[in-house]
Amino acid sequence: MMKALIERLEQKFRISEVVRQRNDELFMTAAKEEAVSLVTYLKEYEGFTHLVLLTAVDWLEAGRFQLTYLLNNNAVKADAGIRVYLDRERPEMESIHHLWKQAATYQRELKEMFGIGFPGSPRVDEPFILEGWRDIPPYRRDFDTKKYSEKTYFPRPGRKTYDPEEYMKKQLYPEE
């Protein structure tokens, strides 16, 4: 079933990096310009009507963000994931809130946590969890959370960190 689906998709869209680990799961990378029409096609024609999640990965070394749309086809119990790569310098993506209303919330969160813009998405610029955040978005990997915490939250002195393996070895087998 998935094989036929891949063939149909390959005829219509420029997809690459197709990974099919199980027969009910499919991951592919789409070009940025085509991603929304691919998602729309999957939703309208292939029965992937449920948006499971929309999330992002920060590939700092490669200088790009990866957006992942995970869709679910409840009729045949199959998942499809669509990866989209964005430029890390100017991360911006078309919104899909017209397909699923709840996508607006995901996009609002992504805007806040990664700084990925979704022009036209409702309430996308309002703060989602963080209030009055002045720093760079906290989920970006170049954000130093430890430094921020030490600067903001009054660390209590005297904190020690042990390596769990070494520590337990010393506890359980002290003579070795």
Binding site: I129, P138, T145, Y148, S149, Y153, F154, R159
Partner: peptide, 19 residues
């Protein structure tokens, strides 16, 4: 609440409640 516990270096949790 004492020193942040396992979330001591998180950007979003306070470390000491007595502040």
């Amino acid at each position: 609440t004492i020193n942040g516990g396992m979330y001591w270096d998180s950007y979003n949790t306070i470390n000491r409640l007595d502040k």
